[in-house]
Write a protein that binds this DNA or RNA. Structure first.
Lengths: 227, 227
DNA sequence: TCTCAAACATGACAAATGTCACAAAACATC
DNA sequence: GATGTTTTGTGACATTTGTCATGTTTGAGA
C-alpha cells in the first residue's frame, strides 16, 4: 500500500481524491518534509519561487517589510488553510515572508510537478482552485474585519480569531506578542496593551502573560460588533 | 472564422491561448453579454452562484454589508483584473456584492462550462489559477496598504490608486464619492473630505467637484509613505 | 425653473489613538 | 545566580480622528 508518511497531512485531501494510489507513491516520494522551529522564517520576501509548499502542522504568519522597514503582518495560516498559493502561480518571486509561530511541518514539491498535475489532472486542478479561492477569501475577509473596526474591535477580533479558528478554545497560549498584534492591526503597541488591560479590568478576559482566557465571549463579540 | 464579438475581451487571453479556434465558437455561443449602467448592482451578496462572470469593460466595486448594515467597500476591479473568482469556486453563495461604478460590460458563462474546461483543458486551468492568484494578490496587497496607514496615507493611497492603476493619468474624474472613500478606508466622511481639502490647500492636488488633478505626485507619494 | 435630496464642506468640540518617558516582569545568555 | 535585553505595563500629554451642527453646492426629476 502507500508507504507515504503523510497520512494525516491535509494536502492528502487534495491528492487522495484525485490521484490513483499508484501515482500517489510517486508524489509521496517527490515530497520533501521540513520541520521548522518557532521563529524560523522559511519563506523570505524576494526569494525565487521554486517550490509548492504546504503547511502540514503548526501555525505561521505571513508578513512583509514596507519601504520604511516597518514590519507588517498580512495574515495567519494554520494547516487547514495555508498553502503559499497566493504567490506561487501569480509571481515568480515571493512578495511576503512566512515565519513559524509554533513548531511547524512544511511539505514541499517542485513547482513543476504541481503545474504538471494541474495540466494533466482536471480533478486536482479544480480542487486546487477551490483551495486557493477559499484561502484568499479568508484572508480578504479577515483583512476587512481589521480595516473597518476601531481599536477595541480590532483587538477583540484578534483574540476571537485565535479562540475560534486556531485553538477552538476560549483558553489558549497567545502565539504572538503584543507587538505583533500591533503589526497586524496597524495600531501602536501601547494602545494594544492598554486595550487588553481594559478587557481584563472589565472582566471580559483573564490574562497571565501570554495565556488568554476568554471569560465573557458574548461581551467580547459585542465589542467587536460595535467598535 | 470566429464570429464572436468578444475580440477585444480580456478573457480572450485566457481562452485563445488554450482553446482551439473551433471550440472557441462553442464557448462564444455559450457566452452572455450584459451591458450595465453606472450604479447597477449586478451581483448581490447572498445570491446563488450559477455563473462565471467576467468584466469586459468598465469599473466596479466589490462591497458588502456588515451585521450593523454598514456598507464596506472591499476592493475595486477593472477589466484587467476582475473576475468574480474569489467566491465562485470556494462558495456556492456570494458573500459580497458587485456594483458598476461606470458603464460596464459583463460577460458570463454557466459555471458548469468553466468547471468542465478546468477539468478537461490543463492549459486553461493553469491560466485560470494564475489569474485568480494575481487578482487575490492585488486585493490583499491593496487592503494591507489601507490597513497600515493613517488618514493622509489612506486617502493618498486611494487618489494614487485611481491615477496609477485605473486611469493611468494624473487627471481624472473620481468614480466614487467621498462617502465611498470613507467606506473603503474605514474613515469617517468628514475626515476624508477634510483630508482632500488639505491636499488641495497644500497644492498637492486640484479639485473641481469630482475632477481630481494631481499636481505634486511625488509629494503625494511621500505623504503616502510617511503616514 | 423649482424643489428636494444627496453630496460636499467647514467649524467646534469630544473621543480615540499615538508618543514619550519610565518601570517592572519575563527571558535568554553567560 | 548575575547580567543584559526584550516584552509588558502604565501615566501624562499631544495629536489624530470622529461626531454633531450647520450651511452650501450639485444633480435629478417634477
Amino acid at each position: 500500500m502507500i508507504s507515504c508518511s503523510c497520512d494525516q497531512c491535509e494536502i492528502k485531501s487534495i491528492f487522495f481524491d484525485t490521484i490513483s494510489s499508484k501515482s500517489l507513491d510517486f508524489y509521496c516520494a517527490a515530497r520533501k518534509e521540513l520541520l521548522v522551529e518557532k521563529g524560523t522564517r522559511f519563506i523570505k520576501q524576494g526569494d525565487q519561487i521554486k517550490e509548492f509548499k504546504y503547511l502540514k502542522s503548526g501555525l505561521v504568519k505571513l508578513h512583509k517589510t514596507d519601504s520604511h522597514n516597518r514590519e507588517q503582518i498580512i495574515s495567519f495560516g494554520n494547516p487547514m488553510d495555508f498553502v503559499n498559493i497566493h504567490n506561487i502561480f501569480g509571481n515568480d518571486v515571493y512578495d511576503y515572508s512566512i515565519t513559524a509561530l509554533e513548531p511547524s511541518t512544511i511539505c514541499s514539491f517542485d513547482i513543476k510537478i504541481i503545474k504538471d498535475l494541474v495540466q494533466t489532472n482536471g480533478a486536482f486542478a479544480l480542487k486546487l482552485i477551490n483551495t486557493i479561492s477559499l484561502s484568499a477569501n479568508r484572508i480578504i475577509s479577515d483583512s476587512l474585519k481589521i480595516r473597518n473596526h476601531s481599536l477595541y474591535g480590532k483587538v477583540a477580533a484578534v483574540l476571537l480569531f485565535f479562540a475560534d479558528h486556531i485553538y477552538v478554545s476560549s483558553e489558549y497560549e497567545l502565539p504572538i506578542s503584543r507587538k505583533e498584534i500591533a503589526q497586524y492591526t496597524g495600531l501602536s503597541i501601547e494602545t494594544v496593551i492598554r486595550s487588553i488591560s481594559e478587557f481584563r479590568r472589565d472582566g471580559l478576559i483573564k490574562v497571565f502573560g501570554k495565556r488568554i482566557e476568554i471569560i465573557d465571549k458574548e461581551g467580547l463579540e459585542l465589542i467587536y460588533e460595535n467598535s
